[in-house]
Design a protein around this nucleic acid. Structure first.
Length: 283
DNA sequence: CACTTGACCTGTCCGC
DNA sequence: TGCGGACAGGTCAAGT
């Protein structure tokens, strides 16, 4: 489910609530989703919460805890006594009032509130790592973040040059190119760059590569500004929804008119993933 | 090797 | 209404 803007939104929300707090206890209801000994978390202080690609990296007093939400993972924090919601109301009070529910697999208790890990399809995971050495393999192969100095047109062009024979859609989904791009933002970035998802990387003109290079950060930033995309299960850390879908040009818009030219948006399959594009705007 | 498919899970939606 | 099948934002391992 969540791609970079969604994971980043969750990271920011949780960091604000939890950095500096200590874990009291952890209740693991679905053991296969928690790799490691949950008892080790007791009394660990949350030093920092970071994000790399779609992975959340928690720095604790003595360990690292990493979380991948995969398709349907959620992290929802409910403050004690709902104090914050009494002022101005909560964006989705009914949603968090149901917690925990049958898809709640792990519960973290803090002095300030409770964090629920929900995952309908149970593809996600949480791992407790002893040191930075154990962390390395999970981050080693990832491409650059879009907002790092390493993200340059040269970098982008050179990485693409190694993947000439696949479609640009497939290339974007590989985390070794630009970390954090998933199905939604691959489609949206390609619309922004006016490139059809079916084009082979080798066929792209330098001008098109440059355009796409500029579009990825633009789309990420736009989505971040709206808290990500809640098409199905994605929720922010407080249970509320992201609003980027209202701004999407192609994703989930099959047969609706293109916002630019009015041509119906098409949806096709590219190596098993649904891909949306405007047959007129994208060449 | 490189590339594709299946697997992991559960729920929803669509057509008959 | 019920039932079967396709599909859903991610990523590996296994197979070709």
């Amino acid at each position: 489910m969540p791609e970079l803007p969604e994971v980043e939104t969750i990271k920011r929300g949780l960091a604000k609530e939890l950095v500096g707090h200590r874990v009291l206890t952890v209740d693991v209801r679905e053991p296969k989703l928690f790799i490691g000994d949950p008892h080790l978390l007791t009394n660990q202080k949350i030093e920092d919460i970071e994000r790399r690609a779609k992975i959340l990296v928690w720095k604790l007093t003595d360990y690292y805890m990493i979380i991948h939400l995969k398709m349907t993972g959620q992290l929802i924090f409910v403050p004690n006594k709902n104090q914050k919601w009494l002022v101005g109301g909560h964006p989705d009070k009914a949603y968090v009032a149901d917690l925990p529910h049958k898809h709640t697999h792990i519960i973290f208790h803090f002095d300030s509130g409770t964090l629920y890990y929900n995952d309908l399809r149970k593809f996600g995971w949480i791992r407790l790592l002893k040191n930075v050495e154990e962390l390395k393999p999970y981050l080693a192969k990832l491409g650059t973040e879009y907002d790092w100095p390493e993200y340059t047109l040269d970098y982008f062009t050179q990485r693409l040059a190694k993947r000439k024979n696949i479609t640009i859609k497939q290339a974007l989904l590989e985390q070794t190119l630009v970390a954090g791009v998933g199905n939604i933002y691959a489609d949206e970035s390609l619309f922004c760059a006016k490139i059809r998802p079916t084009r082979k990387v080798a066929e792209l003109k330098p001008k098109e590569v440059k355009k796409l290079f500029g579009c990825i950060p633009k789309i990420f930033e736009l989505s971040l500004a709206h808290g990500g995309t809640s098409s199905q299960t994605y929720r922010k850390h407080d249970g509320s929804k992201g609003r980027y879908l209202e701004f999407a040009n192609v994703y989930k818009r099959e047969s609706l008119p293109c916002k630019v030219c009015g041509t119906p948006i098409e949806r096709i399959k590219i190596s098993g993933r649904s891909s949306h594009y405007c047959p007129n705007c994208q060449k």
